[in-house]
Write a protein that binds this DNA or RNA. Sequence first.
DNA 1: CGCTGCTGTTCCATATATGGAACGCTAGCT
DNA 2: AGCTAGCGTTCCATATATGGAACAGCAGCG
Lengths: 184, 184
Amino acid sequence: MVQAWTPESAVAMGRRIQRLRQERGLSLSELARSAGIGKATLSGLEGGTRNPTLETLYAITGQLGVPLASLLTEAAGEVRGAAVTARLLEVFEDATATTELYWLTIRPGRVQHSPAHPAGVVEQLTMIAGAARVGPRGAERLVRAGEHVSWAADVPHTYAAVSDQEAQASLLIRQPHGEADATT
Amino acid sequence: MVQAWTPESAVAMGRRIQRLRQERGLSLSELARSAGIGKATLSGLEGGTRNPTLETLYAITGQLGVPLASLLTEAAGEVRGAAVTARLLEVFEDATATTELYWLTIRPGRVQHSPAHPAGVVEQLTMIAGAARVGPRGAERLVRAGEHVSWAADVPHTYAAVSDQEAQASLLIRQPHGEADATT
DNA sequence: CGCTGCTGTTCCATATATGGAACGCTAGCT
DNA sequence: AGCTAGCGTTCCATATATGGAACAGCAGCG
C-alpha cells in the first residue's frame, strides 16, 4: 500500500474531486461557495498544486456527500480495463507464494477479458455488492453479493456485471513460487 | 462516518494516532523523527489541537503502516486482540449491506475468541499464508493457504494459527441492512 | 457594439501549520 | 548528590495554506 504525499497523488486526488463535482453538475465557484472555502483553494486542489488541511477536505467532502476516504483511495496500483477497475490493496509474499489483494469495481454493459496467467495462479473472488459472471472463458459462473468463487487463472477468463449496476468484489490472486512451472 | 472537522473529531483522531504509536512501542519523539515531522506537530496532533495537512498525515501513517483512512473512521482501523490483528482495508456500503474488508494477522500460540455479531452477519475468510483453525466455536475448520471458508458470525467464533508461524488472511464481514432481525 | 453574469485561474496579504529550541520531568547510572 | 539521556509539552520564527480580489474568457441579450 503506497503511503506518501507525492505530486502524483495530489493530482490524482484533484481529479477525483473534480469528477465528483462535475458528476453533481456543480461549478467550481458554486462548490467553493457552498463549502465555505476559497475558489483559489478549490482550483488549486483540483489541479493538484496544494497540500490541503483536513478542515478544507472535510468542507469539500461534506458538500459532495462522500466520505473523506473516497478522496484518498490510492490511484497507485489501479488498473482500469474495459469493464473492470482493479485497485491493489495489499501484496503479501512468503516462501511459497505471492498473493495480491485487489478491490474490483465491475461496470455494467461490457465484458472484461483477461489473458491467461502463468501456470499455478489461482484467483479467488468474493462478491461484495451486485452480481457478475466471472471465471474461465466458457465456464463463467454467476456470483451474487456474499458469494465466493475461485478458479485456476492459467486460461483466459472474463468478468462481466450482470445487472445494470456496478458490482464490487474483492479479488485475491495467488501465484505460487518455485514452480517447475509453465511447461510442466 | 464523521463528515466534519470539529474539535471532537480532532481529539478522536489524535487518540487513534497515539494508540497506534503506543501499540508499536514507539515514543512520540521516535515516531516524529522517523516520520520526518516535528515533535511539536505530532504532540499537537495527538492532543487534537491541530488541523494537519495531508502531507503530515501521510508521513505519519506511512511510518505506522496503516492506510490514512484508518485515522478517519471512528470504528478504529486496526483492532488488536489476543491473537489477531485486523487492519481495515475497505468499507463498502450499499442499500442492502455494509461490507468491511480486513487484513488479518493471526499470531501463533493463542486463541482469539470473538463474540457473536448481530444476526445476519457473515464472515468470509481466505487464507493467504500459513494455516489456522477458524469458525464458530465448536465447529472450527482448518484453513490452509489458498483456501476459503465462510460462516454465519451470529455466534461466538474463534481464530487460532495452527503452526508456530504467523498466518495471514483476508476477512470480509458482511452485515445486511433492513433485517427483520434481532429484537423482532 | 456594450453590458451582465457566469466560468476557472492567478496574485498576494493574511492566517495558520510546521518544526527547531528550550523547557520541565523521570529513570538510570556513578 | 550530580550527570546523562530520554521523555512529552510549549514557545515562537518561518514556511505555507488560505481566500478575497483582480483577471481573462465565454454565453446570452438588448
